[in-house]
């Protein structure tokens, strides 16, 4: 059987940083692709890193762990780390893991760029 379809992560440069836009479920099979893109983005030491989850209908604890890793790196390097456009299902897992107050979570990309 062939492997899972690779997670597509679009990368967009903004004036003070980078927006990552993953498309698809982020689970154990696909979270490594998101981790790779986050690591690449963080190497550039942007002032702001936004993860736009508008096209992520599902995320498990592998995805959460990937976001927490990125959060820890951004805190060390004084980078603003913002997640936006959470679906109700993804928001629910953040709530169960009590992470909604740990991450900066905003409604949409416009707010993420200004936050």
């Amino acid at each position: 059987m062939s492997g899972a379809t690779e997670l597509v992560v679009n990368v967009e440069t903004i004036s003070d940083g980078v927006i990552l836009h993953p498309k698809g479920d982020v689970d154990m099979a696909r979270s490594p692709a998101l981790r790779t893109k986050l690591t690449e983005a963080l190497k550039g030491k942007p002032a702001r890193l936004v993860v736009d989850l508008v096209d992520v209908p599902y995320m498990d604890s592998s995805g959460l762990a990937t976001l927490i890793e990125a959060l820890q790196t951004t805190r060390k390097n004084k980078i603003k780390f913002i997640v936006c456009n959470l679906s109700p299902r993804v928001r629910s897992i953040l709530e169960i893991a009590r992470l909604t107050t740990v991450f900066t979570v905003v409604a949409n990309r416009e707010q993420a760029i200004k936050a």
Partner: peptide, 18 residues
């Protein structure tokens, strides 16, 4: 413990919660 913010270790907590 969820107050310990670190990657990993969330899976079993989620199973019990859900």
């Amino acid at each position: 413990e969820l107050d310990d913010i670190r990657p990993g270790g969330l899976g079993v907590h989620l199973i019990y919660s859900l």
